[in-house]
């Protein structure tokens, strides 16, 4: 009895204090009423949602369907897993996968670490120098990769290129950077490493600003030097940013395309073939739509695996 009474009174109090109950949509008619009441919200969403459905959702589903089909203008037909089998049996795809993986495995860690180092060097500077260096490092990021690839191709030129000239200063013989399969992929990797990772630098700078100063002050009192503070305070506290940047640049790196088509076309001997360039060639040079769709679904699955792993690490951390 006592308990019941207490319960009843809490219920009464809750009724008084709580904001009006969230509408529950058990009843079909009440859902309908809610929808009618909020018709303006749907109108606000309508244009974007229409475009989204037409040009993103529908093509994504269609890509999945196509990957199980033999495409023909007058009626495609299902061929089961044949496209996927063909993808994994083709040497070109395996080579492209290997090249893309190597490209990612070298450039992502290098870019992340270098952007962390650069951001750490910029951070303690005054406002003016901070702005200056931030612009200097972000400027190549706003420039189209088409332009960057064109000039790097020129700098890698065997006869007149800047790099062979600089190598000459040190008495090293000229290298045919992009023209031979042993160096072409590495030339692209070096290029990617030397283009500053502007997004990383800016994100790190923003996150460093959010770290409380008291931590560093306490560490100073404890007698920690700058390097020690960097390793034991800065790096651990930047971990969420680092994970986000690794995710971002891994995804971007798996989609590397512009450099390839502008600088090597995948050659020589498929040495610089990458996944997206292969998809482009399969789809729009050979017009093997089903095969290209299967390749792109595989690319998506690879990226998905990476994203899931990294999201889990991120969540585990918090």
């Amino acid at each position: 009895m006592e308990g019941n009474k207490a319960l009843a009174s809490t219920a009464a109090r809750d009724r008084d204090l709580k904001p009006p109950k969230k509408p529950s949509y058990n009843h079909k008619r009440s859902v309908w009423r809610e929808m009618k009441k909020n018709y303006a919200s749907y109108l606000f969403l309508l244009p974007k949602l229409t475009l989204f459905t037409l040009f993103i959702a529908f093509p994504v589903v269609w890509a999945l369907v196509l990957s199980f089909q033999q495409y023909q203008v007058n009626g495609s037909f299902f061929i089961g897993l044949d496209n996927y089998i063909a993808v994994f049996q083709s040497d070109a795809f395996m080579e492209a996968l290997e090249n893309t993986a190597l490209f990612t495995a070298v450039t992502v860690p290098f870019n992340i670490i270098s952007s962390l180092v650069v951001a750490s060097l910029i951070f303690p500077l005054g406002k003016l120098s901070q702005n200056f260096f931030r612009s200097a490092f972000y400027l190549p990021t706003v420039t189209s990769m088409v332009i960057i690839a064109m000039v790097w191709r020129w700098m890698y030129n065997y006869d007149f290129g800047l790099f062979n000239h600089i190598l000459g200063w040190f008495g090293i013989e000229a290298v045919n950077w992009l023209g031979q399969s042993s160096t072409a992929l590495w030339a692209l990797i070096i290029m990617q490493c030397l283009i500053p990772f502007g997004v990383g630098i800016i994100m790190y700078l923003a996150s460093m600003g959010a770290i409380s100063n008291t931590l560093y002050e306490a560490a100073t009192i404890d007698g920690a030097g700058a390097i020690k503070k960097w390793f034991y305070i800065t790096i651990p506290l930047l971990k969420p940013t680092t994970l986000y940047l690794v995710l971002l640049s891994t995804i971007g790196s798996f989609q590397v395309f512009t450099q390839i088509i502008m600088m090597t076309g995948g050659g020589p001997d498929n040495a610089t073939e990458t996944l997206v360039h292969l998809i482009y060639k399969t789809g729009f040079r050979d017009f093997e739509f089903g095969l290209a769709a299967a390749q792109s679904v595989v690319l998506f699955l690879i990226i998905l695996v990476f994203s899931v792993i990294q999201f889990r690490m991120l969540r585990h951390d918090e």
């Binding site: 040009f55 993103i56 529908f58 093509p59 994504v60 269609w62 890509a63 196509l66 995804i251 798996f254 989609q255 997206v276 998809i279 482009y280 789809g283 729009f284 739509f289 290209a292 769709a293 792109s296 679904v297 690319l299 998506f300 990226i303």
Partner: peptide, 8 residues
């Protein structure tokens, strides 16, 4: 990734 929708 955007490349998935290229063909469709």
């Amino acid at each position: 990734p955007g490349q998935v929708t290229l063909v469709p």
